[in-house]
Design a binder for these strands. Structure first.
Length: 895
RNA sequence: GGGAGUAUAGCUCAGCUGGUUCAGAGCGCCUGCCUUACAAGCAGGAGGUCACUGGUUCGAUCCCUGUUACUCCCACCA
């Protein structure tokens, strides 16, 4: 078999993904195994894959594939989110481009377009995930608005309404004038903005005196219904009981006094606009003030705006300032910086607005959701997010769940009029509602359904349950088997939107947590530390990256720099490392596949060298097995703590350094000679297990190499059978076993000897082809290299390893611990240089000894420190003294 | 305004319960090599007052005080 010297991921990745799909290896059904469930954080149905998705889904895939190989029944459920506001905005825009105005459409017509759009563009992102290698159970693909999920949402709404946890009320909400809908508190982003603070004159009714009020929003004076000052503010005590004229408007409003006012801010006087500010609204309630709503839903002035009616709020601000200024009603204007709320989805400036909305009571739900995180029934990784979570839940307010949109789950509330009163019935569907209306009110006329839809998160919060139909059929075998899920992998910015609410829903509808662990990924940033975004154009296209470096390469690149909860400064070049690693593995395969295996065991003298190499190889195999067991232990620990990047790094080093650089070099037969069968088999086995360990991180290249290894040396028929019927995916992950630390230590010493020889060669410009001799004085029992002598000879190109008792003349030396090693030189050594080097070493050793002696002569240390620590210091002292003596002797020999 | 977090090599980060895993890893950098698996490679090497300050301790990268810088979250000051 002839293999290309460069690994080309493209064809290989496609081949294996199709193979996995054909074999239905991602599919899961409940059985006797332990379940391992992960639900995907559903991406927006019309979204495209970005780097954040890449990171998030790579992590999920690593965990899922590992669990599967550990013998668990892994089920990773994919799906998409209907994303009410975002999708509706996209559809509106698409229609506008086609010259269609949303307002000219009926609800049904609009929804038809929306569904068409969804069918056309929806799910692109799921296709892209396949390129990444995601091992989702695609048969289970769900959508938050498909039949099962839709009905689940309806049932939950009805249930919570009947439990009196859902209510409808007129409240001040965050209004998005662009999307024309209310949004929740969490969907408002406050941004620093440079504006002005306007000082307006409010004349006292019938007098020449006036009071100056500072405001950032002069356009709202049309809605002013009072001016408020602090009751103890002596500057304004004269105003008590008076009334003032709203400038430019002419309306006469009362002066009220309330401690809410901050006397230090502005002039200490505050204008009250109950319809357009939450605080003013509260004061309005308290003092029974009139509330005048001056805005239309789209942010233009309504009929209360007088001559400004129809103008946009920001245009109106300019105009009104101009007009007031001309009328001499502006005292001054100052620059001012404050935080202005923007809609997360549309970026429009949020307008506080009074409107009728549906709310969900949070108090009881929040309490339970807090408990399960506090007592570690659910663990956060990293744990610091517990603080954030607690703080939010302890200060939570009722959740505004209605949205004035069409795309979404329509609120199942119907209105009817009986005896001049509007009554509400809430039911699963219109038919049920009709029945209910008849029962409760004896009403049989037409019903009018609420126009609003539910907040998107009102469906996502049920996701871990509704995916297994656990709302509609709470006792079905699937929900019982797969719920609670194991791990949730998500970004910290949706901890409130989604994570907290899923926990609430889990407690409410399953009396159990929805997952046991939450792994918070970091935010993917560019080299300059900026968040990746479409606007900045600093986000690479993940699909292009995959084409360039292979999915394995990109996965590895992402994982290497992404410890849990840390932001990840992404640089494309990191993918190169992943690609190079794939290539390295590929070339290891090329090496092994080219080996000739010993066919008979000849007894003649020619086989001496083969026998020699055999015993070397035995040690090599032993060592590699021990090393592998050690790393496996490390990796298991890393996974337990969700330290994925560390687990990958450990595996990477095991494969590259230990396996390729050391092990393969140890057993590699000389050119033209065969390798013994035992070593060959052992190598294939070790290599295969390495592939298993790497498979969760790099699924494609490992599957390819694993197959090559399994079929190596097999006849065509057998190979074809293996290729058609086996996959690395469901092989059993190796587990750590006992390993011999002594052997590992001995190898480390041997490795230092080899490095010492190579270093001498390197610094003295000696040819690697010239064999050197190594000798050492055996004085330290910790220095044991007997077992690795043959390997030292092979890898260091050493002709002999000798134990001696006297320092040889004319030799170069290096120290390993307290043992001196010598390399005799045929040519003259550079005395000056050697002397300089030895003196530097001596100086360092003496300094080190000094610090140790200082410690040991400190009575407090000797009395206070534990015996073991003191013993260690004494050992250090002895070693340092030995070393110093040796160095001095060498210097003397040279001089 | 409140709260949380971070600061260790040029970069990104480990360093778990104070003492031989104690100053580490990967990448980058420097030097020499196209050594028949791999230049997407091989061998060797250099780099750090562990942000600053004071304290606790026989002993501090690690615990405590304060300072500085950055990051994030929360909040209705017009």
């Amino acid at each position: 078999m002839e293999l290309a010297s460069k690994y080309d991921p493209r064809a290989i990745e496609e081949k294996w993904y199709q193979f996995w799909l054909d074999k239905k290896l991602f599919h899961s059904e409940p059985d006797n195994r332990v379940p391992y469930t992960v639900v995907i954080p559903p991406p927006n149905v019309t979204g495209v894959l970005h780097m954040g998705h890449m990171l998030n889904n790579t992590i999920q895939d690593v965990l899922v594939r590992r669990a599967r190989m550990q013998g668990k029944n892994a089920c990773w459920v994919p799906g998409t989110d209907h994303a009410s506001i975002a999708t509706e905005a996209k559809v509106v825009k698409m229609l506008a481009e086609r010259g269609i105005d949303k307002r000219s459409l009926s609800r049904d017509e609009f929804l038809k377009y929306a569904w068409e759009w969804k069918e056309q563009y929806g799910g692109i992102i799921l296709k892209q995930l396949r390129k990444l290698g995601a091992s989702c159970d695609w048969d289970r693909t769900a959508f938050t608005m498909d039949d099962v999920r839709y009905e689940s949402v309806m049932r939950v709404f009805v249930d919570l309404y009947n439990k009196e946890l859902i209510y409808r009320g007129v409240r001040m909400v965050n209004w998005d004038p662009q999307a024309l809908t209310a949004v929740s508190d969490e969907e408002v982003v406050y941004k620093e903005s440079h504006g002005k603070l306007f000082y307006l004159r409010y004349f006292v009714e019938g007098e020449d005196r006036y009071i100056v009020v500072a405001t950032t929003r002069p356009e709202t004076i049309m809605g002013d219904t009072a001016v408020c000052v602090h009751p103890e503010d002596e500057r304004y005590s004269w105003l008590k009981g008076k009334r003032v004229v709203v400038p430019g408007v002419g309306r006469v409003v009362p002066i009220i006094m309330d401690e809410y006012v901050d006397r230090e801010f502005g002039t200490g006087a505050l204008k009250i606009t109950p319809a357009h500010d939450i605080n003013d609204y509260n004061l309005g309630m308290k003092y029974n003030l009139e509330s005048i709503d001056i805005f239309n839903d789209n942010g233009t002035l309504n009929e209360h705006g007088g001559k400004y009616a129809g103008m946009d709020r920001f245009a109106c601000r300019k105009q009104i300032v101009k007009d007031l200024d001309e009328a001499g009603l502006i005292e001054k204007i100052e620059d001012y910086t404050n935080k202005v709320g923007h809609s997360e989805r549309t970026d429009a400036v949020i307008e506080p607005k009074l409107s009728a909305q549906w709310f969900l009571k949070m108090e009881g739900l929040a309490k339970r959701a807090l408990e399960v995180v506090e007592d570690d029934t659910i663990r956060f990784h990293p744990a610091k997010f517990k603080n954030t979570y607690r703080h939010w839940l302890e200060n939570i307010k009722d959740w505004c769940i209605s949205r004035q949109l069409w795309w979404g789950h329509r609120i199942p509330a119907w209105y009817l009029e009986v005896n001049g009163r509007v009554e509400t019935v809430v039911a699963l569907n219109e038919e049920e509602a009709r029945k209910l209306a008849a029962e409760k009110y004896g009403y049989t006329g037409a019903l009018r359904q609420d126009d609003d839809v539910l907040d998107t998160w009102f469906s996502s919060w049920l996701w871990p349950i509704s995916l297994f139909d656990g709302i509609r059929n709470p006792d079905n075998p699937e929900i019982k088997y797969y719920y609670p899920t194991a791990d949730l992998i998500t970004a910290p910015d949706i901890i409130f939107f989604w994570v907290a609410r899923m926990i609430m829903a889990g407690e409410e509808y399953r009396k159990d947590v929805p997952f046991h662990n939450v792994y918070f990924t970091g935010i993917v940033r560019d080299k300059l530390g900026r968040k990746m975004s479409k606007q900045l154009g600093n986000s690479p296209d993940p699909i292009e990256l995959i084409e360039k470096y292979g999915a394995d390469g990109v996965r590895m690149g992402m994982l290497l720099t992404a410890p849990a909860g840390n932001d990840l400064p992404f640089d494309e070049s990191i993918c190169e490392q992943g690609r190079n690693f794939s290539n390295k593995l590929w070339n290891a395969l090329r090496l092994v596949s080219g080996w000739q295996v010993e066919t008979s065991t000849p007894k003649d003298s020619k086989s001496r060298s083969l026998e020699d190499s055999k015993s070397n190889n035995e040690v090599a195999v032993q060592w590699m097995e021990q090393r592998m067991a050690q790393v496996l232990e490390e990796i298991e620990r890393d996974f337990d703590q969700y330290r994925l990047s560390e687990a990958l790094m450990a595996t990477y080093k095991l494969a590259w350094d230990d396996f390729c650089s050391w092990y393969l070099e140890m057993v590699k037969p000389a050119y033209g000679t065969p390798i013994d069968r035992e070593t060959y088999e052992a190598t294939l086995s070790i290599f295969s297990r390495l592939m298993l360990m790497l498979h969760p991180f790099m699924p494609f290249v490992t599957e390819e190499i694993w197959h090559a290894l399994q079929t190596m040396g097999k006849d065509d028929e057998k190979a074809a059978f293996i290729n058609a019927n086996y996959s690395i995916m469901n092989q059993h992950m190796p587990t750590s076993v006992y390993y011999d630390q002594r052997l590992l230590d001995e190898f480390d010493t041997a490795r230092e000897v080899i490095a010492g020889v190579r270093n001498i060669r390197n610094t003295r410009n000696l040819s690697p082809k010239e064999a050197l001799e190594v000798s050492y004085i055996a004085s330290d029992e910790r220095f044991r290299i007997d077992r690795f002598e043959g390997i030292i000879r092979k890898l260091g190109n050493v002709s002999a390893v000798k134990v001696i008792t006297e320092k040889p003349a004319g030799a170069l030396s290096f120290m390993i611990g307290t043992t001196e090693c010598f390399v005799p030189m045929s040519q003259n050594v550079n005395r000056e240089e050697e002397l300089k080097k030895l003196q530097e070493d001596l100086k360092y050793a003496e300094g080190f000894l000094n610090s140790v002696l200082k410690k040991l002569s400190n009575e407090k240390f000797v009395n206070g420190a534990p015996a073991a620590v003191i013993e260690k210091e004494r050992n250090k002292q002895r070693d340092a003294e030995t070393k110093i003596a040796a160095l001095k002797a060498q210097i003397a020999a040279l001089g």
